[in-house]
Amino acid sequence: MPIVVNADTRLVVQGITGREGSFHTLRNREYGTNVVAGVTPGKGGRDVEGIPVYDTVHEAVRREGANTAMVFVPPRFAGDAILEAADAGIGTIVCITEGIPAHDMLRIYTHVRPRGITLLGPNCPGALSPGLANVGIIPAQVFARGRIGLVSRSGTLTYQIGKELADLGLGNSTIVGIGGDPVVGLSFVDVLDLFEADPATDLVVMVGEIGGDEEEKAAAFIGERMRTPVVAYIAGFQAPPGRTMGHAGAIISGSAGTAQAKKVALEAQGVRVGASPTEAARLAAEAFAAPG
């Protein structure tokens, strides 16, 4: 069973009546995702193209059995929305919102982590299990169904690599965008762990970028624990230190968080790192064809 989102997903969308929220909710439903409810405080009792809207997540859980939440709430309210979903017993929370203060995420992360809640994001494109469910803003038409797990800190770069894989006749079990903020829920290690245990995944492509040390931690995890082969791509070799490159988390601090350090850490564990998205896809195709 593919990871994070799949045929068991019963989705409630927080912020469903907003412009972005309604647009992507309907796209997700059109794809086949089981969207059971939406939440906008004060708009309970309405519906969005037949999807019932409630005032609270608790009500959506009680009445519709929602087990997954997608957060499309503006940044100053998004932290509260995540905590509400967690309090309502939602097991998987996907937060698309960009721009949540890092200190808010620190408290939220510390709160939800020991409760075993799967938090994806924030500032992420969501997760797509081709043919089963799409929760978020990933353009599903780019990706084919297949047996390669794809995990990334970036949105459009993931689409680029998905397309390069599709051009080589390869598809994906699940595409997971973990997000570009300094503090995110699921890390590379968490997602690699899920892929390792997933019988639908035979190979993982990991797409990292400058900032933090999650790629280095992932390298150590791959070396110690993974039997599923991993191919990687890292963006940001040309990034100067001390400058935020678009994503709040994409910053080289002093000498920490460089693309080169991440590449070296991964290669030390036998992970092949492509010099371009195209080469990463080619390496994936080679690894996929090689007898495992």
Partner: peptide, 12 residues
């Protein structure tokens, strides 16, 4: 469009 893709474009 997108921070990751732009960073990747610089590298390429």
């Amino acid at each position: 469009n997108g921070a990751g893709l732009v960073m990747s474009t610089l590298d390429v």
